[in-house]
């Protein structure tokens, strides 16, 4: 659905003499499959918005090529626009009109007839839980309500590809999970969703595949599970009453355990491939040799660990 090769954008700012350049996006290669929820995870200033704006025809790339929904971004922008929806990071509604009026206009701007536009608007109001305030002016909405309206505006014409720039920023936990459900439903309806986020849990729970972007380039790409497994595997720490060395020796022989070591604190640290299946086998093996287990703990690497390994910084701090 989306395919980019060497996509680049450099911004020049300041006066002629003291101009500085920012390489916002530096040669991006991406492939997003049909019906996929693809997440773009990265810290502030990583180039997420810039990439989205280029793919949504709002910003001409400085180099590289891209195909969106079968249309070439450089030569067939009108065609790209017919197949996409785009929800900007800051949204975009007029203050003195209602959500319903906005939705109807948006559908009409996509060439949909009056009656059909009204039906689509009602449908979108329903799907995004906006009916309670659909006929009030947008000026009166809370931040979260406004965000939901923004997203409804992006899908009212049923695009093939939907770009969402930080769809859940400003939403409370309940609206957030509601929004996730809604985005999953869009995928079920056959839409391809390309979203950006800097929430680790969102990338993890919602996205089929993610790309981690930093400094305008992709540092890692894959399913959340692949990425997490790819770095350190999972770690099981266990405490035994005694015979720690013997326990480590026995466990290292198991085929689900990559390595086992006794740490200074006297506990045993195992590196495993899949913690949830390894733990019962570890327990059984220890019981077989008569070593008494006091505690056992599974630590799964987070996407933040992935980011840390790839960039040397934590996403939380940057």
């Amino acid at each position: 659905m989306i395919r980019t090769r060497g996509l680049r954008k450099t911004f020049r700012t300041g006066r002629r003499r003291k101009s500085t350049t920012v390489e916002a996006v530096a040669g991006l290669d991406l492939t997003v499959g049909e019906g996929e929820i693809f997440g773009f995870l990265g810290p502030n200033g990583a180039g997420k918005t810039t990439t989205l704006r280029m793919l949504a025809t709002l910003l001409p790339p400085d180099g590289g090529e891209a195909v969106v929904a079968g249309a070439d971004l450089r030569t067939a922008q009108a065609e790209v626009r017919r197949s996409i929806g785009y929800v900007a990071q800051g949204g975009g509604t007029w203050d003195d009109v209602t959500a319903r009026e906005e939705l109807v206009l948006q559908a009409r701007m996509h060439g949909i007839g009056r009656a059909e536009a009204q039906a689509r608007a009602a449908e979108a109001l329903d799907a995004f839980d906006l009916t309670a305030f659909a006929d009030r002016n947008c000026r009166t909405y809370s931040g979260g309500q406004r965000r939901r309206v923004d997203i409804a505006l992006g899908v009212v014409h049923r695009p093939k590809v939907l770009f969402l720039d930080e769809p859940t920023s400003g939403l409370d936990p309940q609206s957030r999970s509601h929004m996730w459900d809604e985005i999953r439903r869009l995928r079920t309806a056959g839409m391809t969703v390309f979203l950006t986020t800097h929430y680790l849990d969102e990338a993890d729970a919602l996205c089929d595949r993610i790309a981690i972007i930093d400094g305008g380039g992709i540092v890692a790409e894959g399913t959340p599970t692949e990425l997490k497994r790819g770095i350190a595997g999972e770690v099981v720490t266990l405490e035994v009453a005694d015979h720690a060395a013997k326990a480590a020796e026995v466990l290292a022989a198991l085929d689900c355990v990559r390595s086992a070591e006794v740490r200074d604190e006297g506990d045993v640290r195992l590196s495993v491939d899949a913690g949830e299946t390894a733990m019962p086998r570890v327990m059984r093996a220890l019981a077989d040799v008569g070593v008494e287990l006091t505690t056992i703990e599974l630590h799964r690497p987070t996407l933040d660990d992935v980011f840390l390994t790839k960039t040397g910084r934590s996403l939380r701090e940057s």
């Binding site: 949504a56 025809t57 709002l58 009108a78 626009r81 017919r82 996409i84 929806g85 785009y86 900007a88 800051g90 949204g91 975009g92 509604t93 007029w94 203050d95 948006q106 701007m109 996509h110 060439g111 505006l153 014409h157």
Partner: peptide, 13 residues
């Protein structure tokens, strides 16, 4: 500044 122009520009209007 409010983003309404950008919203229109992504449509084929």
């Amino acid at each position: 500044a409010s983003g309404v122009i950008e919203r229109a520009r992504v449509t084929p209007v």
